[in-house]
Simulated scan of single mutants.
Amino acid sequence: MGHNLLAVGTPAVPGVFQGRKVPCVATNTLPAKRTGKAGSTIFLKTLMAGSGIFFVLFVLGHMYGNLKLLVGESAFNEYAHHLRTIGEPMLPHRGALILAEVLLVLALVAHVYSAVKLWQRSGKARSQRYAVKKSGVGGIEGISAPTMRWGGLFLLLFVVFHLIQFTLPKVNFDGGTTENPYRLVHDSFQLWWVALIYVLAMVALGMHLMHGIWSASQTLGLTGTPSARKNAKLVSHAVAAIVVIGFLIPPLAILFGII
């Protein structure tokens, strides 16, 4: 054999062989299989971040509407009625609300799909487990990260329960009216077990938002500097706290007879 030949599979690194320079030679190493753009991890993370931001905006708007319970029956029912008449007469009755619901369903499908795919990929990546201590994540973030998936599943089940109770078919567990939005909500949160489910769901939502907003900030490249990371963490904590407190004030006020 000629002395300038390299063994198959050896690294393609130039060097010296028996006093002569050996050129860089391509190896037989095959490139890793590449997935399509729609199946890439970056795309899935971006899809999850985008749909998550949409949900954050919706949650903040929903929280604002719920706080009208504190103003009184007339104010809350007027708000509920207005949601069904937005855009009239250009849009049919409930037209804008139906459009918003369709967008929410699409965002939910995108969020759950990307979450499941990323979950599956992370599971495959951990097929060989190593006893390596995680660093850089502590405090509440360290708690919220491992519970992100199961907390998300609990929130999904809560959304189904919430829709059955207040949207379709509307169930008043206290036996009262279902046509008066204020009375339906007020009657529901007078029941301790309904209020407890709501409290648990809001705690899960807060944990989900805290970790989700931080992760979305990383995905969108908003944590490139120490100050940016600090701001992202501050925003994630602030939004989670505002949402949890804002959503819990009305049901607890009803449960304890304040309103």
Rank of each mutant, 00 (worst) to 15 (best):
P14Q: 12
G15W: 08
G15I: 07
F17H: 09
R20W: 11
R20A: 12
R20H: 10
K21S: 12
K21T: 13
V22G: 05
V22H: 09
V22L: 15
V22K: 12
V25H: 09
T27E: 07
T27P: 01
T27N: 08
T27I: 07
T29H: 13
T29C: 07
P31E: 13
A32E: 15
A32C: 06
K33Q: 11
K33W: 10
K33N: 06
R34L: 15
T35R: 14
K37V: 11
A38R: 13
A38G: 05
G39V: 07
G39A: 12
S40M: 03
T41W: 10
T41N: 11
T41A: 11
I42N: 07
F43D: 09
L44I: 04
K45G: 03
K45I: 05
K45T: 10
A49R: 02
A49F: 06
G50Y: 04
G50N: 04
G50W: 12
G50C: 12
S51H: 03
G52H: 00
G52T: 02
G52Y: 00
I53T: 04
I53N: 03
I53V: 14
F55N: 01
F55S: 04
F55R: 00
V56G: 04
L57S: 04
L57G: 07
L57E: 07
L57N: 04
F58R: 07
F58I: 12
L60S: 05
G61D: 07
M63V: 08
Y64R: 04
Y64H: 05
G65D: 03
G65H: 01
K68T: 14
K68M: 13
L70M: 14
G72E: 09
S74D: 13
A75S: 11
F76I: 07
N77G: 03
E78W: 09
A80T: 13
A80N: 05
H81A: 12
L83Y: 01
L83N: 08
T85I: 05
T85W: 00
G87R: 10
E88P: 00
M90Y: 15
M90D: 14
L91F: 11
L91Y: 05
P92N: 02
P92Q: 01
H93L: 08
H93M: 07
R94I: 11
R94P: 00
R94C: 05
G95L: 06
G95A: 01
A96K: 02
L97V: 06
L97T: 05
E101S: 08
V102G: 02
V102E: 12
V102N: 06
L103F: 11
L104M: 13
V105C: 06
L108D: 05
V109A: 07
H111A: 01
H111I: 03
V112S: 03
Y113N: 05
A115L: 14
V116Q: 04
V116L: 12
K117T: 13
L118R: 00
W119V: 08
W119A: 10
Q120F: 14
Q120R: 14
Q120E: 15
R121K: 09
